[in-house]
């Protein structure tokens, strides 16, 4: 599974579109971590607990997106975008979305393949 945030993949030809796929997750750290972050806040610097939290949720969101793409029969997800927001203090929501496509060996084409027709959904 190739994942990129560009619209095309160099050296590969886009042969089919499967539409939008997405994955999202909301995660929180336990109270102890929040307390540690509060302490760390006095002197500033990296909040490792929250960095970890962010990484875990990002990986989970990506995993869910890839799973969706696999179910559609795609072998790549292009034009991936991340979006973060906070729904509650100490929790991170990450959404990642992209377009599931089928790639084949061949020259990168400038004209995109036809998008799926409306009736096919």
């Amino acid at each position: 599974m190739i994942i990129t945030n560009t619209e095309t993949v160099p050296g590969k030809r886009l042969t089919e579109h499967y539409g939008l796929v997405q994955g999202s997750t909301i995660r929180a750290k336990h109270l102890g971590r929040d307390l540690m972050a509060g302490m760390k806040n006095l002197v500033g610097g990296e909040l490792k607990g929250y960095t970890e939290l962010l990484q875990e949720s990002r990986d989970e969101a990506l995993r869910r997106m890839v799973k969706q793409a696999e179910e559609l029969g795609a072998n790549a997800v292009v034009n991936v975008r991340f979006s973060t927001s906070s729904v509650a203090a100490g929790a991170a929501e990450i959404l990642c979305y992209g377009t599931a496509v089928r790639l084949e060996e061949g020259a990168e084409s400038s004209t995109p393949p036809p998008l799926p027709k409306h009736e096919e959904y």
């Binding site: 972050a37 006095l42 990296e46 929250y50 960095t51 939290l53 990484q55 990002r58 991340f82």
Partner: peptide
């Protein structure tokens, strides 16, 4: 398109930093 690309991957980096008191 001057070079032939053989591998493509998504690279991610993240950090959380707080300001001091």
């Amino acid at each position: 398109d001057t070079e032939q690309v053989v591998r493509t991957e998504l690279a991610i980096g993240s950090v959380v930093i707080s300001v001091d008191y």
